[in-house]
Design a protein around this nucleic acid. Sequence first.
DNA 1: TCAATATTTCCAGTATCGTCGAAGTATGGA
DNA 2: TCCATACTTCGACGATACTGGAAATATTGA
Lengths: 112, 112
Amino acid sequence: METTDAIDAFAALAQPTRLEAFRRLVRAGPEGLPAGTVARALETPANTMSTHLAILERSGLVTSRREGRLVYYAASFDRVRDLVGFLIEDCCAGNPDMCDAITGIAATARCC
Amino acid sequence: METTDAIDAFAALAQPTRLEAFRRLVRAGPEGLPAGTVARALETPANTMSTHLAILERSGLVTSRREGRLVYYAASFDRVRDLVGFLIEDCCAGNPDMCDAITGIAATARCC
DNA sequence: TCAATATTTCCAGTATCGTCGAAGTATGGA
DNA sequence: TCCATACTTCGACGATACTGGAAATATTGA
């Protein structure tokens, strides 16, 4: 991952509506959710949400696919992994006991 | 972690100078680096870097301590863990095989 | 007490971003 | 072909952010 990619991803998440939308997509899993469903859930006008989802997609954090007249957006877990990896790259440089804090991510996220 | 805390943290990382500064602090480990060292490494004026480090500190991503006339800044690994945990919270909702992507974070980061 | 070093705060100019009304595009059904 | 639904793009206003010169603060040593 390049620095500019990481900047785009963090900027995408640094906005309340987009962060909340992304977290909903994370919880929705791989199938994702239609744009309209996200917009209604967050009580945001469709065009505003469309702009936000487009920004999330350009950042690589979500993907989209059309099904009939619905456009489904889904979180990209691979991208999240790469982003976090980029952020903490070489954090312990061969010093395993230094990063206990990091290994607890899954537990903190109630993940897996 | 509250949504506003996460917004502040992502906003702090969504800026090239700050992101690079933070990554240097991550590699520097728990001791951290003096403000001036970071400023010179990134070829950024001291006052500009001071502003950026203050933003990182307010976001909780770094901590600071004074040692003589030097102010050391250090990355907060706990905060990173909480931030990532917040982002992917409930990503697999009892579906362990769904989040293979996440479990590879440590490997991606060459961590531990 | 004075000077040098390290860092922070103040301030203002420029640029970028979030929002949403209005108009445009795409899909499916009648 | 026409209409309704779903979503996106355009455009412009107001708000917020990045930068760095200048001045202020903190620490150490002479």
